[in-house]
């Protein structure tokens, strides 16, 4: 059970797609920094639909994307999509066996 931590934009870096190549059904992905922008793209919404996903709230708010991301979240499974703060991030890091920062 791994928490995959992605910080870079999916448009400029392959971190997210590389991580998806090696992910296991038990694992989760945490989107932080520019990585949150991928949620605006339909192909990433689709590829991430079946992954347990955490998104750092500060990073979507900072980019003015909260309303959009919330609207997108409505189409995603509530069971898999979580907007979290830093203390949740810490909690998730402890819950998972390890964190991989891609």
């Amino acid at each position: 059970m791994i928490l995959h931590h992605i910080q870079t934009s999916a448009l400029t870096d392959s971190a997210l797609s590389t991580c998806l190549r090696y992910i296991q059904p038990n694992d989760s992905i945490l989107l932080a920094g520019d990585a949150v922008n991928c949620l605006l793209q339909i192909q990433w919404q689709q590829r991430l639909a079946s992954v347990n996903l955490f998104v750092l709230q500060d990073d979507i708010q900072a980019r003015g994307l909260q309303p959009r991301v919330e609207a997108i979240a409505e189409h995603m499974s509530a069971e898999f999509f979580h907007i979290i703060d830093y203390s949740d991030f810490v909690e998730q890091s402890l819950k998972h066996n390890k964190v991989i920062t891609w």
């Binding site: 190549r21 090696y22 296991q24 390890k98």
Partner: peptide, 16 residues
């Protein structure tokens, strides 16, 4: 890819 997935799961730490 499956072998790499297995390795990532098995080790104590992963650095990228």
């Amino acid at each position: 890819a499956d072998m790499i997935t297995k390795t990532l799961q098995a080790v104590d730490e992963v650095l990228v």
